[in-house]
């Protein structure tokens, strides 16, 4: 019969249409909130998602996985007044960056002229950055990391300087807890090994 296929197809749309209500009702019956809750968003991005699929940004947000990356930022330890910038201006990120959008000026000791492990200036041209994550991946000092913040649209071009790039380590720990803990552990282990070695050396002497 001509039209059978169309009807069959429409049954799918029809089912989908009812699903939007049925799913809402089933949540309501169970006394749970389908919207504006993390649980609800998680449900809408799971294999059981049916019914309304929309995540209503900005009122609610997709759950970002830990590895999500947008643009890079620099990590500092310490507090707002006394920022201990982790970056040593070793230049690896500038070298590895594929579109070459990182610009670093190394600090030189004014007296000796020798390089000091501190960046004097640090720029990332966010209008070139391709969000590849290489800088964060290959930085040996865990000083540059990829941000989760994506609402950074502006009315002008975006060249970020040191001031704009710096974010506290606590923020980093917040957005990437697993990575942060792993790195902290590795660092502690390394320091412990160093201390042990030093102790052994003094003992030997």
């Amino acid at each position: 019969m001509y039209g059978k296929g169309i009807l069959k197809g429409l049954s799918v749309t029809w089912k989908r249409f009812w699903d939007t209500y049925l799913d809402d009702i089933s949540w309501w019956v169970r006394g749970k909130k389908r919207y504006y809750t993390t649980e609800g968003v998680a449900h809408r991005s799971s294999k059981d998602a049916r019914g309304i699929f929309t995540v209503q940004y900005p009122e609610e947000q997709l759950i970002q996985p830990e590895e999500f990356r947008f643009v890079p930022f620099l990590v500092f330890d310490g507090n707002e007044e006394n920022k201990e910038v982790r970056c040593t201006s070793c230049g690896i990120c500038a070298k590895v960056c594929p579109p070459q959008c990182i610009w670093i000026v190394r600090t030189n000791d004014p007296n000796t002229g020798k390089p000091v492990p501190q960046p004097a200036e640090f720029y990332v041209d966010m209008d070139i950055c391709m969000n590849c994550g290489f800088c964060a991946e290959y930085c040996p000092f865990d000083a540059i990391k990829m941000d989760h913040e994506f609402a950074i649209a502006s009315y002008d071009r975006n060249v970020y300087n040191l001031e704009k790039l710096l974010k506290p380590a606590s923020y980093y720990a917040e957005i990437r807890p697993l990575n942060y803990n792993k790195e902290e552990e590795a660092r502690k282990a390394k320091e412990a090994a160093k201390a042990a070695k030093a102790a052994a050396a003094t003992q030997a002497a």
């Binding site: 994506f150 649209a153 502006s154």
Partner: peptide, 12 residues
Amino acid sequence: VYIPGCPPTPQA
């Protein structure tokens, strides 16, 4: 408006 990102996610 300039939207940085490569690509900006739909939310961005």
